[in-house]
C-alpha cells in the first residue's frame, strides 16, 4: 500500500464525490436500477404476503377477508406425521448430498488444474459441464431408460454379460434409489461446480509453485500444500452457502426420479409443500413450511459464518 501511495503525485485528486460519479457514469447506474428493482420486487416486495403464515388464507377472500389463526399453521406442521417424515428425509439427504457432492468439484478442479494438454483439458471441462444444462425432466427420463430393473440399458447389459441374473433395482427399491439419487446429483453438479474453484486457482501466484518446485515438492505435494490452501477461502465460502441449503429440497429432481416404491425417501419438504400447499390449496400451510425452511437455512448460514470466522477464515458476511 505504501508503494502505491508513493506513486501518487501531490495535488492530484483521488476521491470522487457522489454527484460527480453519478454525472459521469449515469448510464451504468441506470443499468444497475433494473437488477436492483428485480431483487426488490421479487425478494422483498413479496414479504408483506408472508403474513399468510398466521392466517387461514383463502384466495377469493384475500388478505383482508381471510381469518387470522395465530400459530395454528406451525402447530399443524409440527404435529403432522407427513411433515416430520419430509423434514427427516430432507435433512438426511441434504447432508448426504453435501458429504458426497461438496468435495467432488474440489477434487475435480484440482485434477483439471493438473492437466497439461490444453485441448484435452478444454474438451474434458466441456463434457463435465454439459449435465448442468440438462433439465431434471430429461435426466429423469434418461435415468429410467438406463436403470429400469428389466428393461433398463445397464441391467440388460449386465444380464447379457452374465454379471447378474436379476436386474438391480437402482430406482425401484428405496436403498438402491438413495444411492442412485445421490450419485446422479453428483454427476449433474460436479462439473459446473469446478468453475469457481478453477477461477480461484488461477489467482494463486505462480511464484509459490516455483518456490515449491525448487524445494523439491512433487506434483501431489504442490497440489496439497499450494493449490488447496490457495482456494481455502473459496471452499469455506461455498461450504457456508451450501449449509444454508440443508433444509431445502429440489422438487424437480425429486419428481423426475420419483416412483411409488420409494416414497419413504423421496417424500421430502419440496414434495410436502407442493402437495399440501399448492395441490391442496393450503397456501398458508405451504408458506409456513417454506418460511421454516428459510429461517433454519438463514440460521445455519449465520452460525457457520461465525464458526468460520472463529477459525480464522474470512467467512461470508
Amino acid at each position: 500500500m505504501k508503494a502505491k501511495k508513493a506513486n501518487i503525485r501531490p495535488g492530484v485528486k483521488t476521491t470522487t464525490s457522489w454527484k460527480s460519479a453519478m454525472r459521469r457514469d449515469w448510464q451504468l447506474y441506470l443499468m444497475l436500477l433494473f437488477p436492483l428493482a428485480m431483487v426488490f420486487i421479487f425478494n422483498y416486495a413479496a414479504y408483506p404476503g408472508l403474513r399468510m403464515i398466521f392466517m387461514n388464507y383463502k384466495v377469493m377472500k384475500g388478505y383482508d377477508g381471510s381469518d387470522w389463526v395465530g400459530m395454528q399453521n406451525f402447530v399443524t406442521l409440527f404435529t403432522s406425521a407427513d411433515f416430520m417424515r419430509a423434514l427427516k428425509s430432507s435433512i438426511v439427504f441434504n447432508l448426504l448430498d453435501l458429504l458426497l457432492g461438496f468435495p467432488m468439484p474440489i477434487i475435480l478442479a484440482l485434477m483439471l488444474n493438473e492437466l497439461r494438454f490444453k485441448t484435452f483439458k478444454k474438451v474434458t471441462q466441456t463434457v463435465l459441464y454439459l449435465p448442468h444444462f440438462l433439465s431434471w425432466a430429461v435426466i429423469g427420463s434418461i435415468a429410467y431408460a438406463m436403470f429400469r430393473p428389466s428393461t433398463g440399458l445397464v441391467n440388460m447389459t449386465l444380464m447379457k454379460w452374465g454379471v447378474i441374473e436379476q436386474g438391480i433395482p437402482f430406482l425401484t427399491e428405496k436403498w438402491h434409489w438413495a444411492v442412485t439419487y445421490l450419485l446422479i446429483n453428483v454427476w449433474q453438479t460436479m462439473g459446473w461446480g469446478t468453475i469457481l474453484y478453477l477461477a480461484a486457482i488461477t489467482s494463486i501466484s505462480g511464484e509459490l509453485y516455483e518456490a515449491a518446485m525448487i524445494d523439491g515438492a512433487t506434483r501431489w505435494q504442490r497440489m496439497i500444500h499450494v493449490t488447496l490452501p490457495g482456494i481455502r477461502s473459496t471452499i469455506v465460502t461455498l461450504l457456508i452457502m451450501n449449509l444454508g441449503k440443508i433444509m431445502g429440497s429440489n422438487l424437480e429432481r425429486l419428481t423426475a426420479l420419483d416412483n411409488a416404491m420409494v416414497k419413504d425417501f423421496s417424500y421430502q419438504l419440496a414434495v410436502y409443500i407442493y402437495q399440501f400447499g399448492l395441490k391442496s390449496q393450503h397456501y398458508s400451510l405451504g408458506t409456513a413450511a417454506n418460511f421454516f425452511q428459510s429461517l433454519v437455512g438463514l440460521a445455519l448460514v449465520l452460525i457457520s459464518d461465525r464458526i468460520a470466522k472463529a477459525l480464522g477464515e474470512d467467512g461470508l458476511l
Binding site: 448510464q27 441506470l30 443499468m31 433494473f34
Partner: peptide, 13 residues
Amino acid sequence: LSASLVGAMAVTM
C-alpha cells in the same frame, strides 16, 4: 441505447 434498454426492461417487468 442504455436508456432504451432500461426502459424496455422496466416495461417488460
